[in-house]
């Protein structure tokens, strides 16, 4: 069974069609990459999956559950984790608190008004082990506002992981990272790959070849090629539309 299934998604703004009959299905443990030139409709597709936009028609299923009409927060509760293209964390919270509050969403009700949340050891333990996993454990007590860009990208990932997602949506996770930071993040993501299915939107072709099991090439709101990274690379349409300039 597919973990994330997108069925015949259509979306347009007036005369501009941004999603045309898009169907993608990502199975257990799979990493699927979404590539395409700017303006191909990657961001609007991400928005429809995460719930910022509603499609005009079509369905999105997460683990068999139809999430097409759910609010953003409901989708997260249903198991859809995501990272943002532009880093989005809670600046006045420490790295640990950022992660702990994400874990809190999955650990019982948040309508508790008296107990000190920062002393809930269960949450803090989840948070700390998640930070450990991404290699930020020694920065746990630092406010997010004081972390470096590279560290914020990792924190962003830790926040998503702490919510125990069934599926991870990665929106350009390498954006703005230096060479060595990218390599480290790719290594981290490939560790996750087997256990957590993901949809990866990325420009970094090296990362895609290392991480993705399958690739969809999106042009003008339409999937014009799909297959293994090698197949898509070989695809002539792909060369013409996108990879051509990179390959040169």
């Amino acid at each position: 069974m597919s973990t994330l299934e997108i069925r015949k998604l259509n979306k347009s703004f007036g005369a501009l069609t941004v999603s045309r009959d898009i169907s993608i299905s990502i199975g257990e443990g799979q990493c699927h990459a979404l590539i395409g030139p700017n303006g191909a409709g990657k961001t609007t597709l991400i928005h429809q999956i995460s719930g910022v936009l509603r499609p005009d028609s079509g369905h999105i299923l997460l683990d068999g559950q139809d999430i097409t009409q759910m609010s953003i927060s409901r989708r997260v509760q249903a198991g859809l984790g995501r990272t943002f293209q532009i880093t989005s964390v809670l600046p006045s919270f420490t790295a640990l608190e950022n992660t702990a509050i994400a874990a809190q969403a999955k650990a019982g009700s948040s309508l508790r008004f008296f107990r000190d949340a920062s002393r809930e050891t269960a949450l803090n333990e989840i948070a700390l082990s998640t930070l450990q996993r991404v290699g930020l454990a020694d920065r746990a007590a630092i406010p997010a506002a004081d972390l470096s860009h590279g560290e914020l990208r990792l924190l962003e990932l830790a926040i998503s992981l702490a919510g125990k997602p069934k599926f991870l949506l990665l929106d350009e996770p390498m954006a703005g990272l230096g060479r060595s930071e990218s390599v480290a993040l790719v290594a981290l993501l490939s560790e996750l790959r087997g256990s957590l299915p993901m949809l990866l939107v990325e420009h970094d072709m090296d990362a895609i070849f290392q991480l993705a099991d399958t690739v969809s090439l999106l042009v003008d709101g339409q999937v014009v090629a799909r297959g293994t990274p090698d197949e898509v690379r070989a695809d002539a349409a792909a060369r013409a539309a996108y990879l051509g300039e990179n390959a040169a």
Binding site: S73, V76, R82, S88, S110, G163
Partner: peptide, 9 residues
């Protein structure tokens, strides 16, 4: 936005 994407309405 982030709070929403942590699962909080």
């Amino acid at each position: 936005e982030r709070a929403e994407v942590m699962g909080y309405p």
